[in-house]
Design a protein around this nucleic acid. Structure first.
Length: 480
DNA sequence: GCATGATCATGC
DNA sequence: GCATGATCATGC
C-alpha cells in the first residue's frame, strides 16, 4: 500500500498522486475544499495564493517549497497548475508557456544540465489544467484536465541542447540578449513586472531582464493535443508513442544538434536548379505557387509532406519558410503568415500571450532559392500549351530568430490590429503598417469571409513581413 | 515600381 | 470546407 498516512495519497508514488488529482476535474477548488477553508486561507495575510500554491496547500496538504527538489520529492513529481483559455468558438487553447524555474544568471552557469534545478524538477510533471476566465477568482476557476507527463527521452536531448545554448549565451555576457527564439523546446522567457530592476549577469556589466526557464507554448500545445486526442480528461503519457513525422531520432541527437541535423539534410542539394532538384528527389514539374516550398519540404522529409507538421517543428514552434530571390538580390514578394483570428486577438490581454507573439518570437528555418538566369519550359495540361518561367536554384538555408527590437515593433503592430478589431474596423485603412510589417487579405478569393466578433462577417486578413524586411533578413544571413 | 488586393493548388 | 504556403495581378 505504501504510505497513505492520512493524506489520501501515497506521496512516494506518482500514479497515486496523479489519481488523487482526478476528482478535481469539473470542479473548482472552492467546491472541493469548501468555502471556509478558502476563507481561512485568505484571511492570513501571509498567503498570497496562486492557484498552484493553493492546490498544494489546501488539497494536497503540504507546504510549497522553493527548494531545487520537485514538489513531491520522494516520487520525483513536480506539480504545475496551468491555464487554458476558451475562445468564442469553444475551442480550448493553451493560455501561456509553462514556467518552470527562474534563471539566476550568476549561479546557473555553474550547473551542468543534469544537476540543474530544471532537470531535476521537470522530468515528471503533474499538470493540472484549469479554465482561465477573466474576472473570476482563482479558486472559482474550473479544472479541466489532469495529466501525469513524463518528458520523453528524445525531448530531453533537445531540451539539454537548448539549456546549453542559453547557458553559453549567459557565459558570453549576453544574458541581456536572450530570446525565446534562441531555442527549440525550452525557452528563456520574460518573467516579472515591467519596472523590476534588471538582474546582474556574469561576464558583463549590462543588466539583464528577469527570465525563467519555460516550456514553450508550442510544446504545451502538443501536450494539450495529446490529451484532447485521448478523449479522456485524465491521462498518463508513459505509453506515449510517436507515430509519424519524426525528423530525427534520439540516437542522432546524441551526436549532433537538431538544427545541424536539419541543415545537413540540405547540404548535398545546395546549388541545384529546380530541374536538377526534381530529378534528384524524383518528382516532376509542378505548376503550383508553392512548388519550391514543396521541394524544400521533400528534402527535409525525404518524401512528400509538411515539415511544419512534424513532431519537432510543432513542439518547437519552428516554421519552415521558402524565399525566392531575384537575380539582382531583390525579393519581390512579402511573406505571409496565418490568418488573423479576430477572436483570439480580442481575447488575448497581453502581447506576450498572443498568437502573433508566438509566431514572431519563434524560430524560423528559411530556405532560399535564387533565380539562376535559366528558364524552365513546361507543358501546362490544363491550358494545353507550353510555357516558360524563371528557374531558381537552392541557394542558402539558415535558422533565424527575430531580433528583440523588431519584436518590440511587432508589439505596436499587434496592438494596432487589436484596436482596429475592437472598434469593428476590419479594413485596410485601419490596420497598422510600418517598415517591417503590414496586414493584407488572404483568402480563396475576395468573397472569402469569416465571422466578425462584432457581428456579421468580415474579410480574412493575415500577418505579413514586408518584402524589404525579408530582403534584409536574407542579406544579413549570407545570401548576396 | 510599389503597394495592395486577389487568387491558386494542395492536403487534411 | 478551410487553412496553408505561397505567388499573381493590377492600379496608381
Amino acid at each position: 500500500m505504501g504510505q497513505q498516512n492520512n493524506l489520501g495519497y501515497d506521496k512516494t508514488d506518482p500514479i497515486s498522486i496523479f489519481e488523487y488529482a482526478i476528482p478535481l476535474i469539473g470542479k473548482t477548488l472552492r467546491q472541493v475544499v469548501g468555502d471556509e477553508v478558502i476563507h481561512d486561507y485568505h484571511s492570513d495575510p501571509n498567503n498570497k495564493g496562486g492557484l498552484g500554491q493553493m492546490v498544494e496547500e489546501l488539497y494536497y496538504h503540504y507546504k510549497p517549497n522553493s527548494s531545487p527538489e520537485p514538489d513531491f520529492a520522494e516520487a520525483g513529481v513536480e506539480l504545475k497548475v496551468t491555464g487554458l483559455k476558451q475562445l468564442k468558438d469553444l475551442t480550448l487553447q493553451i493560455k501561456e508557456r509553462l514556467v518552470v524555474d527562474m534563471i539566476n544568471y550568476v549561479d546557473v552557469i555553474k550547473e551542468p544540465f543534469e544537476m540543474s534545478t530544471f532537470y531535476r524538477k521537470f522530468k515528471l510533471l503533474l499538470l493540472i489544467f484549469y479554465l482561465y476566465e477573466r474576472g473570476i477568482k482563482q479558486f472559482d476557476r474550473f479544472f479541466i484536465y489532469v495529466a501525469l507527463w513524463k518528458i520523453p527521452e528524445k525531448d530531453l536531448l533537445i531540451i539539454k541542447h537548448d539549456y546549453q545554448v542559453i547557458i553559453d549565451k549567459i557565459k558570453r555576457g549576453e544574458a541581456h540578449l536572450l530570446s525565446e527564439g534562441d531555442t527549440e523546446y525550452l525557452g528563456a522567457c520574460r518573467k516579472g513586472q515591467k519596472d523590476d530592476p534588471l538582474c546582474k549577469q556574469p561576464n558583463s556589466e549590462i543588466g539583464a531582464l528577469k527570465r525563467a526557464f519555460s516550456l514553450k507554448p508550442a510544446y504545451m500545445r502538443t501536450v494539450l493535443e495529446y490529451i484532447k486526442k485521448s478523449g479522456k480528461p485524465a491521462v498518463v503519457n508513459f505509453e506515449y508513442r510517436i507515430r509519424d513525422n519524426q525528423l530525427v531520432s534520439a540516437k542522432e541527437l546524441e551526436h549532433k544538434s537538431f538544427e545541424d541535423i536539419i541543415l545537413d539534410k540540405f547540404s548535398s542539394f545546395i546549388g541545384m536548379s529546380y530541374e536538377q532538384l526534381c530529378t534528384a528527389i524524383g518528382c516532376r514539374y509542378d505548376s503550383s505557387k508553392d512548388k519550391y516550398a514543396l521541394l524544400a519540404n521533400r528534402i527535409v522529409l525525404g518524401k512528400p509532406g509538411k515539415v511544419n507538421q512534424s513532431e519537432e517543428f510543432k513542439k518547437a514552434g519552428l516554421q519552415l519558410k521558402t524565399i525566392r530571390v531575384q537575380e539582382n538580390g531583390n525579393i519581390r514578394e512579402a511573406m505571409s503568415f496565418e490568418n488573423i483570428n479576430y477572436y483570439e486577438v480580442l481575447e488575448t490581454e497581453h502581447w506576450e500571450d498572443s498568437r502573433l507573439y508566438e509566431i514572431f518570437s519563434g524560430r524560423f528555418l528559411f530556405v532560399v532559392f535564387r533565380a539562376n538566369g535559366q528558364k524552365i519550359r513546361y507543358y501546362d495540361e490544363r491550358r494545353n500549351a507550353f510555357f516558360e518561367e524563371d528557374s531558381y536554384s537552392l541557394d542558402n538555408v539558415f535558422f533565424w530568430t527575430m531580433p528583440t527590437q523588431d519584436l518590440e515593433l511587432a508589439k505596436f503592430y499587434w496592438c494596432g490590429i487589436k484596436k482596429a478589431i475592437q472598434e469593428d474596423h476590419i479594413a485596410p485603412e485601419f490596420f497598422p503598417k510600418n517598415e517591417r510589417f503590414h496586414v493584407r487579405p488572404k483568402g480563396v478569393n475576395a468573397r472569402d469571409l469569416t465571422e466578425n466578433p462584432n457581428g456579421g462577417l468580415a474579410k480574412k486578413y493575415c500577418y505579413w513581413f514586408n518584402n524589404n524586411y525579408v530582403t534584409e533578413i536574407v542579406r544579413n544571413n549570407g545570401t548576396k
